[in-house]
Design a protein around this nucleic acid. Structure first.
Lengths: 197, 197
DNA sequence: TTTCCAAGTGAACAAGCGTTCATTTACAGT
DNA sequence: ACTGTAAATGAACGCTTGTTCACTTGGAAA
């Protein structure tokens, strides 16, 4: 039976993932050694292997967890109303979920190439689920005539690239507050789905 | 005096950069060893140091060259007419320049974090020049009333993220030809700068 | 108080790393 | 044919890598 108190595994496990995430986001997976991660946790390198079978799996866990938490958070978010209202809600959700999780976003996009083929497929599949959610909204908007799109699937990818790009330049102490950025992007996104005059 | 014939340096130099670009784009800078690059060129690792002072400089050269060639190609492109026509020309230029150079794009965006601070500033400055070119077009469009933007600088970053994102999903044997993608994005870009009805 | 075992240590492993350099190779100019 | 030198070799350098494992530690349960 697991210890109820004094057990470190419930503490060290998350610490390992947090340290790995921070370091990998800053330097890249191959550039970070298990010893560096261990040092950040305050432990010897060997101890990491109580929490992951190897480095590749540690990276995969970070990415899979990020995508699963994203989908879970999205499922818990109420996306209702007209397609236009839904699209606005999606935009706000995307910005609000991603902006405080820049390390996760960076790792999940940048380190895809370092996953084994089967691990890649898992993460890719999760990402597709998220894209499908947006596509559903666009489809509804096309159906009831609120949106006019040149190509639905391309619009999905374009919108997500546009929104996720915010994480690359937004600064808390920058010219714009997060609320201002949210307003600007709600505007830009709605323009994208409206037929030109 | 450099040899005019029989000299390998004019051949091996570009080969080194091409091999480094290919491998780094696929696996990341830290994951690729000088020996792997040398093997791809067909040479021993030591020979690489006739063409670069060290690995960091090799990476920096790839990124700086990419940005400089991009700016040079842009300068040679005739961007004239109304702001709307200019924006359309910019969109086509961006897609046509970046799509055949996906390795360069990937490396230039993904490996920024592995540059030394001073090298980072150089590449960052070159990128800003490119962004400024687009901002100039948007400014002209605002001035003559053809564009209405919620925020000019955010729109610049949003448009570039949107356009560059194409390199992540476009496939030559995919559903859409490059021409179709160009048309779709010209449409999307123009929507972005037009005030909603 | 004793027992037990999860958690962490620290040394060790073979392999690979970036980089240097004395040496060899082979071609251009004489 | 001879010379000079650019280009490449291949061995060597000290160091780091991911991973393993016999061993220690310290708190929970009996």
């Amino acid at each position: 039976m697991a210890r109820k108190q004094g057990s470190h595994s419930d503490i060290t496990g998350p610490k390992v993932r947090a340290a790995a995430l921070r370091l990998i986001a800053r330097h890249g997976c191959a550039a970070v050694s298990m010893r560096q991660i261990a040092a950040e946790v305050g432990v010897q390198a060997g101890a990491l292997y109580n929490y992951t079978s190897d480095k590749q799996t540690l990276l995969f866990d970070l990415m899979r967890r990020h995508m699963e938490k994203l989908l879970a958070a999205y499922d818990e978010t109420l996306i209702t109303g007209t397609p236009t209202e839904q699209l606005r809600a999606f935009t706000l959700f995307h910005i609000r979920y991603h902006l405080p999780r820049r390390d996760e976003v960076f790792v999940s996009y940048m380190e895809l190439r370092n996953l084994s083929p089967e691990n890649f497929l898992v993460v890719e599949g999760l990402r597709r689920n998220y894209e499908d959610a947006l596509e559903g909204i666009l489809k509804a908007g096309e159906a009831d005539g609120s949106f006019t799109l040149p190509d639905r699937k391309v619009t999905v990818l374009s919108l997500i690239a546009q929104l996720t790009g915010i994480t690359n330049w937004y600064r808390d102490d920058g010219r714009l507050t997060q609320e201002q950025v949210e307003d600007i992007y709600c505007d830009l996104v709605l323009r994208t789905v409206s037929a030109p005059r």
